[in-house]
Design a protein around this nucleic acid. Structure first.
Lengths: 315, 315
DNA sequence: CAAAGATCGTGAATCGTTTCAAGCTACGCT
DNA sequence: AGCGTAGCTTGAAACGATTCACGATCTTTG
C-alpha cells in the first residue's frame, strides 16, 4: 500500500519495474483513489468553494467559470454552491463547504457577518470576498460607485434630466453602491434631488425589467434616461419599451450594468457598464490559492477593479 | 467520542442531559463534523454529482436547480460540474466526482461511452442520464423528436413552406433529434425535401443566433418560418431580424425550444417548445436516490417526458 | 436487601490513504 | 571477506468519525 501511494505521489522514489507493475495493476483493477481518505490523512483538500447568489445571472456563472479555470490549472477543483438569494441557503452552503473541508472559499456574499468570516478563517480557510470589501479578508471588488457614476454621467452628458434608477432589492449592497454613485454624479451635475428617482423591483431578472417598463410607462412626464442595476433588468425593460412602441434610445435611453454576453445582442445593443468578470474570478482565485499556499505570512489584500463604460446603441 | 457521534446521529440513544451538554460543547468549540472522515467510515456520501454542458444556458441551470432542491429535501447535497462542451472536461468531471465518492450522478452527457457508464455503475454509483435514453441505465429525457415535430407542425399549419432549422453543432444529440422530428413533420405534410434547410452554428448562444439571422437575410427568397434548436439562438436571431426591420412574425415566424424564462420577455415573446425542466430535474433525482437507497433490487427506468408547444407571438 | 434488567457511556476497531521509520538487497570498497 | 551505503520496499501509525460490544450506573422487584 505504501508503494502504491509512492507510485502515485512520488514516482521518482520507486524503481522503474515496480512502478510499471503497479501502474498495470491500477489500470487492470480500475483503481480510483479515494479522495476523501486522502484528504482525511493530509488535512488538505485541493478544493475551493465558490458561493454565488444565483446561476441564472450569467454574470455570476462567468465569474465562477473564470475562477474554476484558474483552479484547474493549479490542480484545484471547484465546488459550486448557490445561495439562491437566501441567507438561510447561504448558511447551508457554508456549512456544507466547511464539512467538505475545502481549503478556501470564494464568496459573493448576501448577508455574511464578520463573525462568520472570522470563524471560517479560524478553521484555516482562505476566504476571498467577491464584490464586497471588508478589512481583514481578501477581497476583489469592482468600484460600483464609480460604475454608477459612469452610467449616470453618460446619461447626463446626453442632456437627460429626468432619470430613473431601476434596481433590485435594496439589500443587495453592490446595487446600493451603484445607486449612490449615480446620485453623486447627478448632484455633481447640479441636478435637482427629485430628478433621479428610484424604481425598486423584487428581483433582478428580465421579467422584473419588463414589469419595471410597464410602471415606467405610467409615469407622466416620461423619464428620458433609465439606469438599470444590471443587464437582465435592462434587457427586459428595453424589450417591453420597444413592444410598446417607445423608441430606444431616442425617446428613452437605457444603460445597463455588467456587460453580459446578451447585452451585445439585445434588440437595441445595450450601452452598459462592464465589470471585468474574468479578471474578477481570476484574481480572486489567485488570492485564495496564495493564502492556502502560505497561510502564515499571507497578507490580506483588497483589490478594487475599475468598471468601464461600453457605449452601444441604447444610450 | 462515541457519545458525540450518538448525539449527532442517534440522539434518542443519549440521555437528555448528556445530549445538551454535548450540544453546548459543540456550540462553544465551533465543532464542525468532518464529512470526509464520516464518508470514509460509512462508505456512503449523501452527495450526488450533477454534470451539465454549460451553466450559461438557463435550461441547464434550471434543471440542476430543481434537482438540487429535491436532493436537499432528502438530506443530500449536489456537486455541480460543467463539461463546458468538451469531452475532455467531461472526463475530468467524472474523475473528480468518482474520487469524491459521490453516491450518484446526474449527467447530461456529451460523449459518454457505454463502457464508462458501466464502469461507474460497477463502482456502485447510481447513474441517471438526462436528455438521453440508453438501455441499462436510468434516464429521463424529453421526446425531442416529438418536440421538433410540434414546432415544425405549428409552422406548417400557418402555411409556411420555406423553413429553416437553425441549430448548433451536430454532435449534440438532442438537437439532431429535434431536427429529425421536424423533418418527419415536413415530410408528413408532403413538403419537398429542399423546403426545410439547415443552418448550423458553432454554438447555441444568442450571438450565434444573431449570426444566423445575418446569414438568413442573405437568402433569396427569404424563408418564412424558422425553427431554432434552442431559445438562446431564437432570441439572438429575433433581435437581429427586428433590428434589420424584418417584422416578426408577419414576415418571418420563429419558434424556439426550451421555454427558458427569457423567452416570455423577448421583444417578440417567443413561441417555443417547452421542456418540463423542473420535472426533469426532479424525476432524475428521485431515480438516483431510489437507486442509491436500494441498489440491489433497483430496476432501471427510462422516463420519457412530453414537450409542449407554447404559443406566444413570434409564430 | 440483593439480583436482574434497563439505560446510557466508553473504548477499540475500522474505513483508505499517506508518511515515516525500519528492513532488506545488492553493490562497491578496503 | 566484511562492512558501509545507497536504493527500494515493507509495515505500522495516524487522520476523524462511526459502530458495536462491553461495562457502569441506576431502577425495579421478589
Amino acid at each position: 500500500m505504501g508503494t502504491v501511494s509512492n507510485v502515485l505521489n512520488r514516482p521518482n522514489l520507486v524503481a522503474e519495474a515496480t512502478r510499471e507493475r503497479v501502474q498495470a495493476a491500477i489500470g487492470e483493477l480500475g483503481f480510483v483513489r479515494n479522495e476523501t481518505a486522502r484528504q482525511l490523512r493530509q488535512g488538505q483538500s485541493h478544493v475551493l468553494g465558490v458561493v454565488v447568489p444565483t446561476m441564472a445571472n450569467p454574470y455570476f456563472s462567468d465569474v465562477g467559470r473564470a475562477a474554476e479555470t484558474v483552479m484547474n490549472a493549479e490542480g484545484f477543483d471547484a465546488l459550486w454552491c448557490t445561495s439562491e438569494g437566501s441567507p438561510t441557503k447561504e448558511q447551508r452552503c457554508l456549512d456544507f463547504l466547511e464539512e467538505q473541508n475545502v481549503s478556501g472559499l470564494l464568496i459573493s456574499p448576501l448577508d455574511l457577518g464578520a463573525a462568520r468570516v472570522a470563524e471560517l478563517h479560524g478553521r484555516g480557510l482562505a476566504v476571498v470576498l467577491l464584490d464586497r470589501t471588508t478589512a481583514g479578508v481578501c477581497s476583489v471588488a469592482v468600484d460600483h460607485r464609480a460604475g454608477g457614476a459612469l452610467a449616470a454621467h453618460h446619461l447626463l452628458g446626453r442632456r437627460h434630466r429626468r432619470l430613473v434608477f431601476v434596481t433590485g432589492p435594496r439589500s443587495i449592497r453592490p446595487v446600493r453602491e451603484r445607486h449612490a454613485g449615480a446620485v453623486r454624479a447627478a448632484r455633481d451635475a447640479g441636478l435637482d434631488e427629485h430628478a433621479l428617482t428610484t424604481l425598486e423591483q423584487p428581483e433582478m431578472t428580465a421579467s422584473a425589467g419588463r414589469d419595471a417598463a410597464r410602471r415606467l410607462l405610467e409615469l407622466d412626464p416620461l423619464p428620458t434616461g433609465v439606469f438599470c442595476g444590471n443587464d437582465l433588468l435592462a434587457i427586459g425593460l428595453i424589450n417591453e419599451l420597444v413592444r410598446a412602441g417607445v423608441k430606444v434610445p431616442t425617446e428613452i435611453s437605457v444603460v445597463g450594468y455588467d456587460d453580459i454576453d446578451l447585452a451585445a445582442t439585445a434588440v437595441v445593443p445595450l450601452t452598459t457598464v462592464r465589470q471585468p468578470r474574468e479578471e474578477l474570478g481570476r484574481t480572486a482565485t489567485e488570492l485564495a490559492l496564495a493564502e492556502t499556499g502560505d497561510p502564515e505570512q499571507h497578507e490580506h489584500r483588497q483589490v478594487v477593479l475599475s468598471p468601464e463604460l461600453i457605449v452601444r446603441e441604447s444610450a
